[in-house]
Every structure is written in structure tokens, then in C-alpha cells.
Simulated assay, not measured.
Amino acid sequence: MSFLWAVIAGLVIGLLAKLLLPGRQPVPLWLTIVLGIIGGVAGNALAGALGVRDTGGIDWIRHLLQIGVAAVLIAVFSPVWGRRRV
């Protein structure tokens, strides 16, 4: 069941990251989910290193870090994927 939640979280994080980036990213949905999952895991690790992983209430900083890492990953892979498809 945790695998299903990881895929759902990766989808949400990846789509939010794509919304932050200007223009169109030629990254397919499956890669968006994979990069969202990686961004979520890396964002959790970064939040833990900064000491803001578990706070009272909603962990906004952790979620922003997850989305930010996913946005960077999508920004890096988008030109690579676009060149590959042409």
C-alpha cells in the first residue's frame, strides 16, 4: 500500500513542480511521477538535514523542499528529454 501512496505523492509533487516551471516541459507523465517520487524522497532528506522534517501542524517547509527538488529535476531532464524525442 505504501508503494501506491508513493506513486500518488510523486504524481502530485511532480505536477506541482511542473506548474512552477515556465513554459512547456516535454516530460511524459510517467517520468513526472518518477521525478516527483525522487523529489519527495530527496526533499524529505533535505528537510531532515535542516531539522524541519517534523514540525507542529502541516510541514510546509518540507513540502516546499520536495516540490523544489522535483522542479529542479524536471528542469534538468526536460531539455534532455526534448532533444531525445526530436
Rank of each mutant, 00 (worst) to 15 (best):
L16Q: 12
G14W: 03
I61F: 11
L20T: 11
A45L: 15
S2W: 13
L46T: 10
A71G: 01
T55S: 11
D59K: 07
G82Q: 11
A17V: 10
V80C: 07
L46M: 10
L15A: 02
P26C: 05
L73M: 14
G48K: 00
D59N: 13
V80F: 14
L11Q: 06
G36K: 05
W30V: 10
A70L: 07
P22S: 14
P22G: 15
L31W: 06
G57R: 04
L11C: 08
V72C: 06
D59H: 14
G23E: 13
A47L: 06
P26L: 00
F77H: 03
V52E: 11
F77E: 01
I37F: 12
K18C: 07
I58S: 03
L35W: 05
L64C: 01
G23L: 13
I37C: 11
G48R: 08
L35H: 04
I8L: 15
A42Y: 12
I61K: 10
V69D: 05
V69I: 01
D54C: 12
V34R: 05
L11T: 10
G40F: 11
G57S: 06
R62F: 08
L15T: 02
S78K: 01
S2H: 12
R24G: 10
A71V: 07
V80K: 11
T55H: 05
P79C: 08
G10D: 06
W81T: 08
V80T: 10
Q25A: 08
A9M: 07
A42I: 15
R53T: 02
P26I: 02
R85Q: 00
V69T: 08
A17L: 08
L15F: 07
V86A: 09
V69W: 01
A49W: 15
M1E: 14
F3T: 14
L16K: 09
A6E: 10
G23F: 13
V69E: 07
Q66V: 11
G56A: 11
A42L: 15
L46V: 10
Q66D: 12
V34I: 14
R53S: 01
T55E: 09
R83Y: 02
N44L: 06
L19I: 13
N44A: 09
G48M: 02
A45N: 13
